[in-house]
Design a protein around this nucleic acid. Sequence first.
DNA 1: CCCTCTCTATTCATCTGGTGAATAGTCCAC
DNA 2: GTGGACTATTCACCAGATGAATAGAGAGGG
Lengths: 178, 178
Amino acid sequence: MSTGHVLLGLLSRGQRHGYDLKRDHDERFPQAKPLAFGVVYSTLERLHRRGLIAPLAVQRVDGPDRTAYGITDAGRAELAQWLATTDEPSEHVTNPFAVKVTLALLLGDEAGAEAFLRAQRAAHLVRMRAFTTAKTAPGASVHEVLAADYALAHLDADLTWMDAALRRVTTLREELGA
Amino acid sequence: MSTGHVLLGLLSRGQRHGYDLKRDHDERFPQAKPLAFGVVYSTLERLHRRGLIAPLAVQRVDGPDRTAYGITDAGRAELAQWLATTDEPSEHVTNPFAVKVTLALLLGDEAGAEAFLRAQRAAHLVRMRAFTTAKTAPGASVHEVLAADYALAHLDADLTWMDAALRRVTTLREELGA
DNA sequence: CCCTCTCTATTCATCTGGTGAATAGTCCAC
DNA sequence: GTGGACTATTCACCAGATGAATAGAGAGGG
């Protein structure tokens, strides 16, 4: 429950209500996908059910009711635990490009597989240029530069793979027996 | 619905029932996470609801009932469309390590952030050694080598990012105002 | 001969999380 | 005084993932 942990982290700095948390998150992690309200409130409900947060007050201040939540001791423990735990990188490989290429080759469409790889390569290059621009913009923060670096490194990893795959499409097709 | 498209792809080679498809998938993509039965059957139901596949026969052959599905014309069209479409790489960045580091720094725990990065780095190195072993094993297929290459490239991208982050932890903390 | 184990095949209950629309109150500008 | 923007939450729905339950048939062992 990673969204849950993020909300827990934001709540550990002081009580907040759902709308606040969504804004907090989106400002703090501008490169991340904005949180949808549905996700925020349902996640808060789950955290509450697990006893990691508690509703503190329902106030009405210049507008509709708002429910402020605070982190509990159990919540602090869970958060500390999560922050200190490393993710074991999976032994499984999820490569969406390989899935498409393999299926195209199984259907005997070697030309289609190659066309896909070339088109995907081009789409990656476009996005990489955008991240490079963002990263080298004057006034970019360390946070922004690191975010762009991460994205660029992974896009480049995809690119390297696609080039290798392009060079071996025919061999792959033969290996698949198609 | 990527699982759906994969099943569609496998079904386009001829009718199959759920259990068959699960085995087909796991054999064809041994590096991927094995499909759970629950996923297979609920995905088939959705594909059926959308008219992309159709149940052809309920047979009983040496065991319990089995429902064979076949792809429809609409299914073939959907599959061809999906195979030819590139994924626009997201403009959003999802970096789980950055999230943890940022939250740790927000809570003022610079030492914890560094410890996490070092531990995660070590975990990555272990997994990378495993993939390197798998890839250089005698008799490894092109498919297996490409799968390992993909995983290695992404793990290395993470590693590069973690090294950069380690060098800038203090700057990052200051930038966050913690 | 019956018992258990394994393999085949499917279903079900339950959970996380993600989307889009609906609801509802307040404030501000025109 | 009405329409729009902002605050705040809820709801209905769907995708996808897990783990357990159900159930038939064949195989092997005591």
